[in-house]
Computed example of a mutant assay.
Amino acid sequence: MSSTQQTLKVAVVVASTREGRFAPTIADWFTGLTAQRPDLEVDVIDLAEAGLPDRLSKEPGPEVTDISCRLGGADALVVITPEYNHSFPASLKTVIDWHYTEWRAKPVGFVSYGGMAGGLRAVEHLRQVFAELHAVTVRDTVSFHGVWDHFDASGAPKEPAGAEAAAKTMIDQLIWWGRTLRDGKAARPYAA
């Protein structure tokens, strides 16, 4: 089987850990779309369920080691993030800072949500952070402005066409970058 036919391993990081968070609704919707893609193998890393310590330590515990293995084994990543105070959650920053090589030379896509800005300010901050870690962020994102108005009580999008089209574009870009970078690293090590 050629590498273009192999499934792409994608880690989906759900960033919000706040009580009453909207993240599970967004994550369920997004992973429902990825489940329809036979070219993807998705691993959801929900930071609210990860049991992470509340601060960095010199000796990360088993929870961090588990996340490290899952991030390291992924070919590509998707971050689902809200926007808190014009940026991204501290829980996500902590997980990013605990890791380095796990992000290197991998594509990162974004699904963001929030109020008027739809989480896009968080995404723009994340692009700078991931560039420092030698990750490649895909251009197109999925963004929900005024997110609470976009989903019904069952968690389904009220008007799915636009969001699904944005997700397809982002996923297609993620797959292209994921396969390209995976093949490139297999042919020659990434020079960091």
Rank of each mutant, 00 (worst) to 15 (best):
A23C: 04
W103I: 07
G118A: 07
L33N: 01
G51L: 13
G146I: 00
D39G: 06
Q173V: 08
H150C: 09
H99I: 00
L47H: 01
L174P: 04
P24W: 02
Q36P: 00
L181N: 05
A48P: 07
K58V: 10
V79L: 09
L133E: 09
L77D: 01
F110G: 04
A191V: 11
T65V: 12
A166K: 12
V42E: 12
R139L: 06
L120W: 00
I67G: 05
Y84D: 06
D28A: 14
Q173E: 15
G114Q: 09
V12E: 02
T4Q: 13
S68A: 14
T65W: 00
V138Y: 05
D75V: 09
R104V: 13
I80C: 02
A165P: 00
C69D: 13
T101E: 13
L174R: 01
D28S: 14
V123H: 04
V108H: 08
K158S: 03
V42H: 10
G114D: 05
L56D: 05
E102A: 12
T4H: 12
R139A: 11
Q173R: 11
A191F: 02
N85C: 02
V147M: 09
H86N: 09
T137N: 14
A153C: 02
V13F: 01
L174N: 04
A191Y: 01
I80G: 01
E41W: 04
V79D: 00
S16A: 10
D183A: 13
A192L: 12
W103H: 08
V147K: 01
D152Y: 06
A191H: 12
R104F: 07
N85L: 09
P107D: 11
T169M: 04
Q6I: 00
P189F: 00
E19F: 09
G162L: 14
R127F: 02
V147R: 05
V136I: 13
L8V: 14
G184T: 11
G114L: 10
H86I: 00
G61A: 11
D97P: 07
G51I: 11
D172Q: 04
E102P: 01
Q128W: 08
G146L: 08
E59N: 15
I96T: 04
M170C: 06
C69H: 14
I175E: 11
V42L: 08
T17M: 10
V95C: 08
L126V: 03
A90C: 02
S91A: 15
R55P: 00
V79I: 15
K168G: 05
G155N: 07
A191W: 08
P160F: 07
V79W: 04
I171Y: 07
L8H: 04
E19R: 14
